[in-house]
Design a protein around this nucleic acid. Structure first.
Lengths: 196, 196
DNA sequence: CTTGCCTATGCAACAAGTTGCATAGCAGGA
DNA sequence: TCCTGCTATGCAACTTGTTGCATAGGCAAG
Protein backbone atom coordinates (compact mmCIF):
# COMPACT_ATOMS: atom_id res chain seq x y z
CA UNK A 1 0.00 0.00 0.00
CA UNK A 2 1.74 3.05 -1.30
CA UNK A 3 -0.36 5.49 0.73
CA UNK A 4 1.57 4.38 3.78
CA UNK A 5 4.82 5.13 2.03
CA UNK A 6 3.60 8.47 0.76
CA UNK A 7 2.76 9.33 4.38
CA UNK A 8 6.19 8.19 5.56
CA UNK A 9 7.88 10.38 2.96
CA UNK A 10 5.74 13.37 3.84
CA UNK A 11 6.33 12.95 7.58
CA UNK A 12 10.06 12.56 7.01
CA UNK A 13 10.07 15.80 5.08
CA UNK A 14 8.19 17.37 8.01
CA UNK A 15 6.26 15.85 10.95
CA UNK A 16 2.62 16.83 11.24
CA UNK A 17 -0.93 15.92 12.18
CA UNK A 18 -3.50 14.01 10.16
CA UNK A 19 -5.17 17.27 9.28
CA UNK A 20 -1.94 18.80 8.06
CA UNK A 21 -1.20 15.70 6.02
CA UNK A 22 -4.64 15.91 4.44
CA UNK A 23 -3.83 19.43 3.33
CA UNK A 24 -0.45 18.40 1.99
CA UNK A 25 -2.27 15.78 -0.05
CA UNK A 26 -4.17 18.64 -1.65
CA UNK A 27 -0.90 20.37 -2.41
CA UNK A 28 2.58 19.02 -3.04
CA UNK A 29 2.02 15.36 -2.22
CA UNK A 30 -1.21 15.53 -4.16
CA UNK A 31 0.84 16.07 -7.32
CA UNK A 32 1.48 12.32 -7.38
CA UNK A 33 -0.73 10.72 -4.75
CA UNK A 34 -4.22 11.54 -3.54
CA UNK A 35 -5.96 10.67 -0.28
CA UNK A 36 -8.84 11.99 1.77
CA UNK A 37 -8.63 12.78 5.45
CA UNK A 38 -10.64 9.67 6.36
CA UNK A 39 -8.13 7.45 4.62
CA UNK A 40 -5.23 9.28 6.22
CA UNK A 41 -6.59 9.06 9.77
CA UNK A 42 -7.28 5.37 9.36
CA UNK A 43 -3.82 4.61 8.02
CA UNK A 44 -2.09 6.82 10.61
CA UNK A 45 -3.77 4.83 13.36
CA UNK A 46 -2.62 1.55 11.85
CA UNK A 47 0.92 2.77 11.28
CA UNK A 48 1.16 3.99 14.84
CA UNK A 49 -0.07 0.61 16.11
CA UNK A 50 2.55 -1.09 13.90
CA UNK A 51 5.27 1.10 15.39
CA UNK A 52 6.19 2.84 12.17
CA UNK A 53 5.11 6.21 13.55
CA UNK A 54 5.48 8.03 16.85
CA UNK A 55 2.74 10.33 18.15
CA UNK A 56 2.94 13.39 20.31
CA UNK A 57 -0.07 15.25 21.70
CA UNK A 58 0.41 18.93 20.98
CA UNK A 59 -1.82 21.35 22.92
CA UNK A 60 -2.62 24.45 20.92
CA UNK A 61 -4.23 27.73 21.83
CA UNK A 62 -6.97 29.19 19.70
CA UNK A 63 -7.62 25.84 18.05
CA UNK A 64 -8.16 22.19 19.00
CA UNK A 65 -5.21 20.13 20.17
CA UNK A 66 -3.54 17.94 17.57
CA UNK A 67 -1.59 14.72 17.39
CA UNK A 68 1.72 15.26 15.72
CA UNK A 69 3.06 12.18 13.98
CA UNK A 70 6.69 11.53 13.13
CA UNK A 71 8.49 8.59 11.57
CA UNK A 72 10.06 6.10 13.98
CA UNK A 73 13.37 4.35 13.39
CA UNK A 74 11.41 1.27 12.36
CA UNK A 75 9.35 3.36 9.94
CA UNK A 76 12.50 4.64 8.28
CA UNK A 77 13.79 1.09 7.91
CA UNK A 78 10.48 -0.02 6.42
CA UNK A 79 10.62 2.82 3.89
CA UNK A 80 14.18 1.90 2.95
CA UNK A 81 13.14 -1.69 2.27
CA UNK A 82 10.22 -0.57 0.15
CA UNK A 83 12.49 1.69 -1.88
CA UNK A 84 14.56 -1.31 -2.95
CA UNK A 85 11.56 -3.32 -4.15
CA UNK A 86 10.63 -3.06 -7.82
CA UNK A 87 7.39 -1.23 -8.57
CA UNK A 88 4.66 -3.12 -10.32
CA UNK A 89 3.20 -1.29 -13.33
CA UNK A 90 0.69 1.42 -12.49
CA UNK A 91 -2.91 0.67 -13.32
CA UNK A 92 -4.23 3.18 -15.84
CA UNK A 93 -7.52 5.02 -15.34
CA UNK A 94 -8.37 7.63 -17.94
CA UNK A 95 -12.09 8.14 -17.71
CA UNK A 96 -12.02 10.81 -20.39
CA UNK A 97 -10.58 8.30 -22.85
CA UNK A 98 -13.42 5.88 -22.06
CA UNK A 99 -15.90 8.65 -22.80
CA UNK A 100 -14.10 9.56 -25.99
CA UNK A 101 -14.44 6.07 -27.35
CA UNK A 102 -17.98 5.84 -26.05
CA UNK A 103 -18.88 9.08 -27.81
CA UNK A 104 -18.83 7.25 -31.14
CA UNK A 105 -22.11 5.64 -30.07
CA UNK A 106 -23.67 8.96 -29.13
CA UNK A 107 -23.02 12.53 -30.27
CA UNK A 108 -19.25 13.14 -30.26
CA UNK A 109 -19.70 16.91 -30.44
CA UNK A 110 -21.56 16.88 -27.13
CA UNK A 111 -18.20 16.14 -25.49
CA UNK A 112 -16.53 19.33 -26.72
CA UNK A 113 -17.57 21.38 -23.71
CA UNK A 114 -16.37 18.72 -21.31
CA UNK A 115 -13.01 18.41 -23.04
CA UNK A 116 -12.60 22.18 -22.96
CA UNK A 117 -13.38 22.13 -19.24
CA UNK A 118 -10.68 19.51 -18.68
CA UNK A 119 -8.22 21.52 -20.70
CA UNK A 120 -8.90 24.56 -18.52
CA UNK A 121 -8.30 22.47 -15.39
CA UNK A 122 -4.98 21.28 -16.80
CA UNK A 123 -3.99 24.83 -17.70
CA UNK A 124 -4.79 25.94 -14.15
CA UNK A 125 -2.78 23.06 -12.74
CA UNK A 126 0.13 23.93 -14.99
CA UNK A 127 0.04 27.57 -13.87
CA UNK A 128 -0.02 26.37 -10.27
CA UNK A 129 3.01 24.13 -10.83
CA UNK A 130 4.93 26.87 -12.64
CA UNK A 131 4.19 29.33 -9.85
CA UNK A 132 5.43 26.76 -7.32
CA UNK A 133 8.55 26.20 -9.34
CA UNK A 134 9.33 29.91 -9.53
CA UNK A 135 8.70 30.26 -5.81
CA UNK A 136 10.57 27.21 -4.51
CA UNK A 137 13.24 26.64 -7.12
CA UNK A 138 13.91 30.14 -8.44
CA UNK A 139 13.88 29.26 -12.11
CA UNK A 140 13.01 31.67 -14.86
CA UNK A 141 12.52 30.47 -18.41
CA UNK A 142 15.44 28.18 -19.08
CA UNK A 143 16.66 26.27 -16.10
CA UNK A 144 20.38 26.64 -15.43
CA UNK A 145 21.80 24.39 -12.78
CA UNK A 146 24.70 26.76 -12.04
CA UNK A 147 22.35 29.59 -11.14
CA UNK A 148 20.64 27.47 -8.51
CA UNK A 149 21.76 28.97 -5.19
CA UNK A 150 21.89 25.56 -3.55
CA UNK A 151 24.19 24.00 -6.10
CA UNK A 152 26.36 27.04 -6.76
CA UNK A 153 29.63 27.82 -5.00
CA UNK A 154 30.82 24.26 -4.53
CA UNK A 155 28.01 23.53 -2.05
CA UNK A 156 26.80 19.93 -2.04
CA UNK A 157 23.40 19.85 -3.76
CA UNK A 158 20.46 19.07 -1.48
CA UNK A 159 19.24 15.69 -2.72
CA UNK A 160 15.73 16.20 -1.34
CA UNK A 161 15.32 19.52 -3.08
CA UNK A 162 16.69 18.23 -6.35
CA UNK A 163 14.33 15.26 -6.26
CA UNK A 164 11.33 17.38 -5.36
CA UNK A 165 12.15 19.59 -8.31
CA UNK A 166 12.50 16.59 -10.63
CA UNK A 167 9.07 15.33 -9.54
CA UNK A 168 7.58 18.79 -10.08
CA UNK A 169 9.11 18.92 -13.57
CA UNK A 170 7.30 15.64 -14.21
CA UNK A 171 4.01 17.24 -13.21
CA UNK A 172 4.73 20.17 -15.50
CA UNK A 173 5.58 17.89 -18.42
CA UNK A 174 2.40 15.91 -17.80
CA UNK A 175 0.15 18.97 -17.82
CA UNK A 176 1.77 20.33 -20.98
CA UNK A 177 1.32 17.00 -22.69
CA UNK A 178 -2.34 16.84 -21.66
CA UNK A 179 -3.07 20.38 -22.86
CA UNK A 180 -1.53 19.60 -26.26
CA UNK A 181 -3.36 16.29 -26.53
CA UNK A 182 -6.70 17.86 -25.64
CA UNK A 183 -6.10 20.39 -28.43
CA UNK A 184 -5.70 17.41 -30.73
CA UNK A 185 -8.88 15.81 -29.33
CA UNK A 186 -10.86 19.03 -29.79
CA UNK A 187 -9.72 19.29 -33.39
CA UNK A 188 -10.79 15.68 -33.93
CA UNK A 189 -14.19 16.21 -32.31
CA UNK A 190 -14.81 19.28 -34.46
CA UNK A 191 -13.71 17.51 -37.63
CA UNK A 192 -15.98 14.50 -37.28
CA UNK A 193 -19.70 14.73 -37.82
CA UNK A 194 -22.48 14.83 -35.27
CA UNK A 195 -22.48 11.08 -34.78
CA UNK A 196 -25.12 8.44 -35.32
CA UNK B 1 -18.10 3.02 -11.63
CA UNK B 2 -16.31 3.59 -14.87
CA UNK B 3 -15.41 -0.07 -15.35
CA UNK B 4 -19.04 -0.68 -16.26
CA UNK B 5 -18.86 2.02 -18.87
CA UNK B 6 -15.57 0.78 -20.25
CA UNK B 7 -17.24 -2.62 -20.66
CA UNK B 8 -20.26 -1.06 -22.38
CA UNK B 9 -17.98 0.74 -24.82
CA UNK B 10 -15.97 -2.38 -25.53
CA UNK B 11 -19.08 -4.52 -26.07
CA UNK B 12 -20.58 -1.88 -28.34
CA UNK B 13 -17.44 -1.93 -30.44
CA UNK B 14 -17.75 -5.72 -30.53
CA UNK B 15 -19.77 -8.21 -28.42
CA UNK B 16 -17.78 -10.87 -26.61
CA UNK B 17 -17.34 -13.09 -23.56
CA UNK B 18 -15.83 -12.22 -20.20
CA UNK B 19 -12.66 -13.97 -21.22
CA UNK B 20 -12.41 -12.00 -24.45
CA UNK B 21 -13.04 -8.77 -22.55
CA UNK B 22 -10.27 -9.64 -20.13
CA UNK B 23 -7.90 -9.96 -23.06
CA UNK B 24 -9.05 -6.69 -24.58
CA UNK B 25 -8.28 -5.10 -21.23
CA UNK B 26 -4.71 -6.27 -21.72
CA UNK B 27 -4.69 -4.68 -25.16
CA UNK B 28 -6.56 -1.71 -26.58
CA UNK B 29 -8.92 -0.99 -23.70
CA UNK B 30 -6.00 -1.46 -21.34
CA UNK B 31 -4.48 1.70 -22.81
CA UNK B 32 -6.82 3.71 -20.62
CA UNK B 33 -8.53 1.32 -18.22
CA UNK B 34 -7.33 -1.84 -16.50
CA UNK B 35 -9.29 -4.71 -15.01
CA UNK B 36 -8.69 -8.34 -14.12
CA UNK B 37 -10.90 -11.19 -15.21
CA UNK B 38 -12.36 -11.56 -11.71
CA UNK B 39 -13.51 -7.96 -11.72
CA UNK B 40 -14.93 -8.31 -15.23
CA UNK B 41 -16.92 -11.47 -14.51
CA UNK B 42 -18.37 -9.94 -11.36
CA UNK B 43 -19.42 -6.76 -13.13
CA UNK B 44 -20.79 -8.61 -16.17
CA UNK B 45 -23.05 -10.61 -13.88
CA UNK B 46 -24.34 -7.47 -12.21
CA UNK B 47 -24.86 -5.64 -15.49
CA UNK B 48 -26.78 -8.56 -16.92
CA UNK B 49 -28.98 -8.66 -13.80
CA UNK B 50 -29.59 -4.92 -14.20
CA UNK B 51 -30.63 -5.43 -17.81
CA UNK B 52 -27.83 -3.40 -19.34
CA UNK B 53 -26.42 -6.46 -21.10
CA UNK B 54 -27.87 -9.39 -23.01
CA UNK B 55 -26.26 -12.83 -22.84
CA UNK B 56 -26.17 -15.59 -25.39
CA UNK B 57 -24.76 -19.08 -24.73
CA UNK B 58 -22.40 -19.92 -27.57
CA UNK B 59 -21.39 -23.58 -27.94
CA UNK B 60 -17.90 -23.96 -29.34
CA UNK B 61 -15.99 -26.94 -30.64
CA UNK B 62 -12.46 -27.60 -29.50
CA UNK B 63 -12.90 -25.31 -26.51
CA UNK B 64 -15.35 -24.67 -23.65
CA UNK B 65 -18.63 -22.96 -24.40
CA UNK B 66 -18.81 -19.27 -23.74
CA UNK B 67 -21.35 -16.63 -22.81
CA UNK B 68 -21.38 -13.85 -25.35
CA UNK B 69 -22.47 -10.52 -23.93
CA UNK B 70 -23.87 -7.63 -25.92
CA UNK B 71 -25.27 -4.24 -24.95
CA UNK B 72 -29.04 -3.99 -24.56
CA UNK B 73 -31.08 -0.96 -25.57
CA UNK B 74 -31.19 0.04 -21.92
CA UNK B 75 -27.42 -0.32 -21.69
CA UNK B 76 -26.98 2.04 -24.62
CA UNK B 77 -29.28 4.57 -22.97
CA UNK B 78 -27.36 4.29 -19.70
CA UNK B 79 -24.08 4.91 -21.52
CA UNK B 80 -25.56 7.95 -23.26
CA UNK B 81 -26.60 9.43 -19.93
CA UNK B 82 -23.18 8.83 -18.45
CA UNK B 83 -21.53 10.55 -21.40
CA UNK B 84 -23.39 13.75 -20.61
CA UNK B 85 -22.31 13.83 -16.95
CA UNK B 86 -19.19 15.80 -16.10
CA UNK B 87 -16.16 13.75 -15.06
CA UNK B 88 -14.72 14.35 -11.63
CA UNK B 89 -10.94 14.86 -11.63
CA UNK B 90 -8.88 11.70 -11.88
CA UNK B 91 -7.06 10.63 -8.76
CA UNK B 92 -3.34 10.60 -9.35
CA UNK B 93 -1.17 7.65 -8.39
CA UNK B 94 2.49 7.83 -9.37
CA UNK B 95 4.29 5.39 -7.16
CA UNK B 96 7.62 6.16 -8.82
CA UNK B 97 7.29 9.80 -7.77
CA UNK B 98 6.70 8.71 -4.17
CA UNK B 99 9.89 6.66 -4.33
CA UNK B 100 11.80 9.51 -5.88
CA UNK B 101 10.97 11.80 -3.02
CA UNK B 102 11.55 9.02 -0.52
CA UNK B 103 14.96 8.35 -2.01
CA UNK B 104 16.26 11.53 -0.39
CA UNK B 105 16.12 9.64 2.93
CA UNK B 106 18.00 6.66 1.54
CA UNK B 107 20.48 6.29 -1.32
CA UNK B 108 19.08 8.12 -4.38
CA UNK B 109 21.50 6.35 -6.71
CA UNK B 110 20.04 2.98 -5.77
CA UNK B 111 16.95 4.00 -7.74
CA UNK B 112 18.80 4.40 -11.04
CA UNK B 113 18.31 0.80 -12.10
CA UNK B 114 14.61 0.92 -11.29
CA UNK B 115 14.13 4.15 -13.22
CA UNK B 116 15.96 2.68 -16.20
CA UNK B 117 13.70 -0.37 -16.03
CA UNK B 118 10.63 1.86 -16.10
CA UNK B 119 12.00 3.79 -19.02
CA UNK B 120 12.48 0.54 -20.93
CA UNK B 121 8.88 -0.43 -20.20
CA UNK B 122 7.68 2.93 -21.50
CA UNK B 123 9.82 2.55 -24.62
CA UNK B 124 8.32 -0.89 -25.23
CA UNK B 125 4.83 0.47 -24.73
CA UNK B 126 5.55 3.32 -27.15
CA UNK B 127 6.82 0.86 -29.77
CA UNK B 128 3.69 -1.18 -29.25
CA UNK B 129 1.43 1.85 -29.71
CA UNK B 130 3.32 3.01 -32.80
CA UNK B 131 3.08 -0.46 -34.34
CA UNK B 132 -0.65 -0.46 -33.65
CA UNK B 133 -1.00 2.96 -35.20
CA UNK B 134 0.83 1.90 -38.36
CA UNK B 135 -1.27 -1.25 -38.57
CA UNK B 136 -4.70 0.20 -37.83
CA UNK B 137 -4.44 3.77 -39.01
CA UNK B 138 -1.91 3.56 -41.83
CA UNK B 139 0.19 6.52 -40.79
CA UNK B 140 3.84 6.98 -41.66
CA UNK B 141 5.86 9.77 -40.11
CA UNK B 142 3.69 12.83 -40.45
CA UNK B 143 0.00 12.21 -40.24
CA UNK B 144 -1.95 13.59 -43.19
CA UNK B 145 -5.70 13.42 -42.89
CA UNK B 146 -6.22 13.51 -46.65
CA UNK B 147 -4.19 10.33 -47.13
CA UNK B 148 -6.41 8.46 -44.70
CA UNK B 149 -8.39 6.03 -46.87
CA UNK B 150 -11.48 6.44 -44.71
CA UNK B 151 -11.63 10.19 -44.97
CA UNK B 152 -10.48 10.52 -48.57
CA UNK B 153 -12.79 10.74 -51.57
CA UNK B 154 -15.60 12.64 -49.91
CA UNK B 155 -16.46 9.66 -47.70
CA UNK B 156 -17.88 10.57 -44.28
CA UNK B 157 -15.18 9.96 -41.66
CA UNK B 158 -15.82 7.05 -39.28
CA UNK B 159 -16.27 8.74 -35.92
CA UNK B 160 -15.36 5.59 -33.98
CA UNK B 161 -12.12 5.16 -35.85
CA UNK B 162 -11.19 8.81 -35.54
CA UNK B 163 -11.82 8.74 -31.81
CA UNK B 164 -9.90 5.50 -31.32
CA UNK B 165 -6.99 7.10 -33.13
CA UNK B 166 -7.21 10.24 -30.99
CA UNK B 167 -7.10 8.13 -27.83
CA UNK B 168 -4.13 6.19 -29.20
CA UNK B 169 -2.32 9.44 -29.98
CA UNK B 170 -2.86 10.33 -26.32
CA UNK B 171 -1.16 7.12 -25.28
CA UNK B 172 1.73 7.86 -27.63
CA UNK B 173 2.09 11.40 -26.29
CA UNK B 174 2.03 10.07 -22.73
CA UNK B 175 4.77 7.50 -23.33
CA UNK B 176 6.98 10.05 -25.11
CA UNK B 177 6.53 12.47 -22.24
CA UNK B 178 7.40 9.79 -19.68
CA UNK B 179 10.53 8.69 -21.56
CA UNK B 180 11.76 12.28 -21.73
CA UNK B 181 10.96 12.92 -18.07
CA UNK B 182 12.74 9.75 -16.96
CA UNK B 183 15.81 10.94 -18.87
CA UNK B 184 15.58 14.10 -16.79
CA UNK B 185 15.17 12.04 -13.60
CA UNK B 186 18.18 9.86 -14.45
CA UNK B 187 20.32 12.94 -15.05
CA UNK B 188 19.19 14.30 -11.69
CA UNK B 189 19.91 11.04 -9.85
CA UNK B 190 23.38 10.88 -11.38
CA UNK B 191 24.10 14.50 -10.54
CA UNK B 192 23.24 14.32 -6.86
CA UNK B 193 25.45 12.52 -4.40
CA UNK B 194 24.97 9.12 -2.79
CA UNK B 195 22.57 10.44 -0.14
CA UNK B 196 22.69 10.35 3.59
C1' DC C 1 -25.96 35.84 19.40
C1' DT C 2 -26.39 33.32 15.50
C1' DT C 3 -24.40 31.72 11.41
C1' DG C 4 -20.74 30.27 8.76
C1' DC C 5 -15.98 28.90 8.36
C1' DC C 6 -11.63 26.79 9.84
C1' DT C 7 -9.08 23.49 12.64
C1' DA C 8 -9.12 18.81 14.22
C1' DT C 9 -10.49 13.85 14.67
C1' DG C 10 -13.17 10.08 13.88
C1' DC C 11 -17.07 6.12 12.87
C1' DA C 12 -19.94 3.33 9.80
C1' DA C 13 -21.45 1.67 5.60
C1' DC C 14 -20.58 0.84 1.19
C1' DA C 15 -18.14 0.34 -3.40
C1' DA C 16 -14.19 -1.05 -5.88
C1' DG C 17 -10.06 -3.55 -6.57
C1' DT C 18 -6.69 -7.46 -5.44
C1' DT C 19 -5.11 -12.11 -4.42
C1' DG C 20 -5.49 -16.83 -4.05
C1' DC C 21 -7.74 -20.62 -5.28
C1' DA C 22 -10.94 -23.99 -7.83
C1' DT C 23 -13.08 -26.16 -11.71
C1' DA C 24 -13.28 -28.08 -16.38
C1' DG C 25 -12.70 -29.22 -21.42
C1' DC C 26 -9.52 -29.79 -24.95
C1' DA C 27 -4.92 -29.83 -27.48
C1' DG C 28 -0.21 -30.99 -28.19
C1' DG C 29 4.17 -32.77 -26.89
C1' DA C 30 7.34 -35.76 -24.06
C1' DT D 1 -0.14 -41.33 -20.07
C1' DC D 2 1.09 -37.39 -17.90
C1' DC D 3 2.19 -32.68 -18.05
C1' DT D 4 1.77 -28.18 -19.76
C1' DG D 5 -0.84 -24.54 -21.63
C1' DC D 6 -4.90 -22.25 -23.40
C1' DT D 7 -9.84 -21.23 -23.18
C1' DA D 8 -13.51 -20.30 -20.02
C1' DT D 9 -15.93 -19.21 -15.63
C1' DG D 10 -16.28 -18.42 -10.98
C1' DC D 11 -16.08 -18.09 -5.34
C1' DA D 12 -14.17 -16.27 -1.00
C1' DA D 13 -11.47 -13.39 1.65
C1' DC D 14 -9.19 -9.44 2.05
C1' DT D 15 -7.49 -4.64 1.25
C1' DT D 16 -8.34 -0.04 -0.45
C1' DG D 17 -10.94 3.83 -1.44
C1' DT D 18 -15.37 6.64 -1.17
C1' DT D 19 -19.36 8.89 0.90
C1' DG D 20 -22.04 10.56 4.44
C1' DC D 21 -22.25 11.83 8.86
C1' DA D 22 -20.90 13.32 13.75
C1' DT D 23 -18.42 15.91 17.15
C1' DA D 24 -16.17 19.96 19.11
C1' DG D 25 -13.63 24.34 20.04
C1' DG D 26 -12.67 28.90 18.47
C1' DC D 27 -12.99 33.00 15.33
C1' DA D 28 -15.08 36.65 12.66
C1' DA D 29 -18.92 38.87 10.34
C1' DG D 30 -23.49 40.41 10.43
Amino acid sequence: MALEHAILVSLLEKPGSGYELARRFERSIGYFWTATHQQIYRVLKRMEADGRLDVREVPQQGRPDKKEYSVSAYGLTALGEWLHEPIQPESVRHELAVKLRGAAFDDPRALIGEVERHQRMHRDQLDHYLAGERRDFAVSDSRTAVSDPLTAGGEPPDAGRELQHAVLRGGIAYERMMIAWLDDVLATLRRIGPGR
